[in-house]
């Protein structure tokens, strides 16, 4: 997998992440903090910081998804080689394990990773909205 450059790490002060969904419900907006949105649309430094925090949480989620895909599916070619390396026999690796892994199990595993990611990414966005509206 290629290296995905991470955005520069910066200290985000005063913008706690996560676990804000509970406060983000509609109607809990405190007067005086609506400007968060306009900070973003007017591209102030604070607005940029908000966007960065969302990008970073989304990128972390995506990398976690990739981190699940790479060891679960990406290492299979090496696993298939193991019996040959261990026994030293020159058998082609067409055992039932290969059939089961590539023909059957790989698809639900990938779908579960995808479902986890979609839920997590949407939660990140909900948290972010809560951050803007309900802080």
């Amino acid at each position: 997998m290629p290296t995905t450059p991470r955005p520069r790490r910066e200290t985000v002060t005063g913008v706690p992440r996560g676990s804000r969904a509970s406060q983000g419900a509609r109607g809990s907006r405190t007067p005086g903090h609506a400007p968060a949105r306009s900070e973003i649309s007017e591209q102030t430094t604070l607005g940029a910081t908000y966007v960065r925090s969302l990008m970073r949480s989304q990128l972390r989620t995506a990398l976690l998804g990739l981190g699940a895909l790479a060891p679960l599916i990406g290492t299979l070619p090496l696993l298939f080689l193991l019996p040959r390396v261990l026994t030293g026999a020159a058998l082609p690796a067409s055992g039932p394990f290969v059939w089961a892994a590539l023909g059957l199990v790989a698809y639900p595993v990938m779908w579960l990773i995808a479902r986890w990611y979609v839920h997590r990414a949407e939660r990140n966005e909900r948290d972010f909205r809560g951050l803007l509206e309900g802080r």
Partner: peptide
Amino acid sequence: QGPEMLWYPVGYTAGYLVLLLFVAA
């Protein structure tokens, strides 16, 4: 060529997963 060729469909599917993770939205 046997079951190793199943990497093609697995790869076609995983391509969509990577697309979802980094690009879709």
